[in-house]
C-alpha cells in the first residue's frame, strides 16, 4: 500500500526532472567506460561458452595431425567430411536416436498425464488428505536418484522389466512426477473457481469438465513441461547406465560413451559423433529457445 503511494507520488517528478532516469533497471545512462567494461565481461564469458563448442565442431572436420600440432585453434584447412562418414558408419547413431526418442516421448506423455490429473485433484477438489497428498508427492524433488540405485534395480528385475524400454520409462516418470505435479498445482490455483461451478450447472460431470474446460486452459504449462521432461529423459545418464546392459537398447548418452571407448585416439571422428549427437537438442533449443528457458526456470515458481 505504502509502496503504491510512493510510486504515484514519484511519477510526475521522474517525468519532468529526470528524463534520463526512465524506467531502466538501475537507471542512469551507461557511462562509456563502464559500458565497455560490461560488454567486455559479457563477451568474454560468451566466448568461454561458445568457443569450446566451436572447437568441437571444427575438430570434427580435422585429422589428428591438424588438431594436435598444425592448426590447434582455428577452422580446418581441409574440410574432412570423412570423419562424419566414419562416425555415422561405426557409431550406430540411428539406433541410439530411435531409443532415446521412444523413451523420451513415452516419458513425456505418461508423466504429463499422471501429474496433470494428480495436480487437478489436489488443487481444485476439496478432500481431507489433499494437502498431505501434495506434500507427499513433492518428496521426490529431494531424493537423489543414486540413493535408490540398488532397490530400483531389484524392483525392475522383480517386475521383469530389465532390458526393456520400460526399465527406463518407469523410473523417469516416477522421478519427474514430483516436479510436474508442483508446477501444475501452481498453475491450477491461478484459475478462477467459477469454472467448475459453471460447468456443473450445465450438467457436465467432473471428467468432462476436466477434459473439455480445464485441460485447454493449462496448455502453456503443458508445452513448457513437455520440453523440460523431454530434455531430461533425452540426456539422462545415471539410470540408463545401471538399467540397460543390452547395447541395442542404449540411449544416446550411453551409446556415445561406447563409441568414445572405441575411437579414443581418433579425435576427428570423436568430434563428429559429439556434434551429431548434439544436433537434436540444439535444434530444439534454437526453435523453442524461450520455451526451453521458461521450462527450465519454472522451478522459480516452485518452492513450497
Amino acid at each position: 500500500m505504502k509502496g503504491q503511494q510512493d510510486h504515484q507520488g514519484y511519477v510526475p517528478v521522474s517525468r519532468t526532472a529526470a528524463p534520463t532516469h526512465r524506467r531502466g533497471v538501475a537507471g542512469g545512462r551507461l557511462r562509456r567506460v563502464s559500458g565497455i567494461a560490461l560488454y567486455t565481461l559479457l563477451s568474454f564469458y560468451a566466448f568461454c561458452n561458445l568457443y569450446p563448442l566451436f572447437w568441437m565442431v571444427s575438430n570434427s572436420f580435422k585429422n589428428n595431425q591438424e588438431i594436435f600440432v598444425r592448426n590447434v585453434f582455428g577452422l580446418p584447412r581441409i574440410w574432412r567430411f570423412e570423419n562424419y562418414i566414419k562416425a555415422w558408419q561405426s557409431f550406430n547413431i540411428f539406433l541410439y536416436f530411435k531409443n532415446s526418442m521412444i523413451v523420451a516421448t513415452a516419458t513425456v506423455v505418461i508423466t504429463l498425464m499422471l501429474s496433470i490429473m494428480f495436480a487437478y485433484a489436489t488443487a481444485r477438489m476439496s478432500w481431507k488428505l489433499s494437502s498431505i497428498a501434495r506434500i507427499y508427492m513433492s518428496i521426490g524433488m529431494f531424493v537423489p536418484v543414486q540413493v535408490i540405485f540398488i532397490p530400483l534395480v531389484l524392483l525392475i528385475r522383480d517386475f521383469h522389466l530389465s532390458n526393456s524400454y520400460l526399465a527406463l520409462i518407469v523410473p523417469y516418470v516416477a522421478f519427474q512426477l514430483s516436479f510436474c505435479s508442483i508446477v501444475f498445482y501452481g498453475f491450477f490455483r491461478t484459475l478462477p473457481p467459477e469454472l467448475e461451478e459453471a460447468a456443473a450447472i450445465d450438467g457436465a460431470n467432473v471428467y468432462v469438465t476436466f477434459y473439455r474446460i480445464i485441460l485447454p486452459l493449462v496448455k502453456p504449462a503443458i508445452a513448457t513441461l513437455a520440453i523440460f521432461v523431454f530434455l531430461f529423459s533425452w540426456n539422462e545418464f545415471a539410470i540408463a547406465l545401471i538399467m540397460i546392459s543390452n547395447n541395442s537398447l542404449k540411449t544416446l548418452p550411453l551409446g556415445l560413451l561406447l563409441f568414445q571407448g572405441q575411437f579414443a585416439t581418433d579425435w576427428g571422428a570423436m568430434g563428429a559423433s559429439l556434434a551429431l549427437a548434439s544436433i537434436p537438442t540444439i535444434v530444439v533449443y534454437l526453435l523453442f529457445g524461450n520455451e526451453v528457458e521458461k521450462a527450465l526456470t519454472v522451478g522459480s515458481a516452485v518452492k513450497g
Partner: peptide
C-alpha cells in the same frame, strides 16, 4: 550463449 551448454548431453 550462456544457456546453450545446458541443453547438451552430459556425455
Amino acid at each position: 550463449a550462456y544457456f546453450v551448454p545446458v541443453v547438451l548431453s552430459i556425455t
